[in-house]
């Protein structure tokens, strides 16, 4: 069945081909480089190195043009998906070229800076790709999606309103207890980042602890109202837990761009310095 096949193909992010392509590229580049060094003349080795560097610079400029494609929607310039895949694979190829250009070594402080910047760009790209592959799948497995989370986060006051409604139906004694100890929990600003450093079981344990404490203090007759509030709080927790991960994916994609800008600046400085000296 078409849709089942579609779901199965996205079962794991590890099913992506690019890590394998990257691994193969690194090995091939090392073998080619070693071959040129062993069997080639000194002249050939030197020109090959310059050639790798020049090709890598051109590719880096091509890679940067993906940013332009991302803002031009109205012209036929190739599908965005095609551009993204080309960007990914050319980026990996560029890594191999850079390694060949540097003889798989680091030369001096500037070389170190270049390698750090380059690693930042590559790692942020890889990490972003990994997140693109895993987080939407994880969210859909949780029976949720980004649109739904965005909607819920837009109306944080709804949880407080619902909590008030639950309390309204309870006894007067519980209403007082709700006003003193529980309402503030729902009135708190929604803050997903803290959930980033917690596992799902941590979140559950923390909530259980909180509500057990409240149950020990609250009026014994209104256990039902308290458990309804706990369920509502659990839903709020879930939204924040998922949203925290979703936001990481969104923010991460922005980390790739400044790192690239820094790398391009350093690359231009490197080319200028090499030409000058």
């Amino acid at each position: 069945m078409a849709i089942k096949r579609s779901a199965e193909s996205k079962a794991t992010a590890l099913s992506a081909k690019w890590p394998l392509v990257f691994f193969v590229l690194l090995i091939v580049s090392f073998l080619v480089h070693a071959g040129v060094r062993i069997w080639g003349s000194l002249f050939m080795v030197e020109w090959a190195r310059i050639g790798y560097g020049a090709l890598a610079s051109v590719i880096m400029l091509i890679l940067t043009s993906y940013s332009l494609r991302k803002i031009v929607f109205t012209r036929k310039m190739g599908s965005m998906e095609g551009w993204r895949k080309t960007h990914l694979y050319l980026g990996l190829f560029c890594v191999a070229l850079i390694f060949m250009h540097t003889n798989f070594k680091v030369y001096g402080n500037f070389g170190l800076l270049m390698i750090i910047l380059f690693s930042l760009v590559i790692l942020s790209g890889m990490m972003g790709e990994l997140m693109y592959k895993t987080i939407p799948v994880w969210l859909s497995k949780q029976g949720s999606d980004a649109m739904e989370l965005d909607e819920k986060l837009k109306k944080p006051g709804e949880y407080l309103t619902t909590a008030d409604e639950i309390a309204e139906k309870a006894t007067n004694e519980f209403k007082v207890f709700y006003g003193q100890s529980i309402r503030s929990l729902f009135a708190k600003r929604i803050f997903p980042p803290k959930y980033l450093f917690m596992s799902q079981s941590d979140v559950i344990a923390s909530r259980k602890k909180l509500f057990n404490h409240l149950a020990s203090q609250g009026p014994p007759k209104d256990r039902m109202a308290l458990s309804s509030l706990e369920a509502l709080y659990a839903e709020r927790d879930k939204v924040q837990f998922k949203y925290a991960r979703l936001q990481v994916m969104r923010i991460w994609s922005n980390a790739h761009v400044p790192a690239t800008a820094a790398l391009l600046t350093a690359m231009l400085a490197h080319i200028w310095a090499v030409s000058y000296y």
Partner: peptide, 19 residues
């Protein structure tokens, strides 16, 4: 929309508006 692939970049809506 395959939501396991959608990364919420908004390009679909933005391009529709631009067009």
């Amino acid at each position: 929309l395959d939501i396991t692939k959608c990364v919420q970049c908004g390009a679909c809506v933005e391009s529709c508006a631009k067009l």
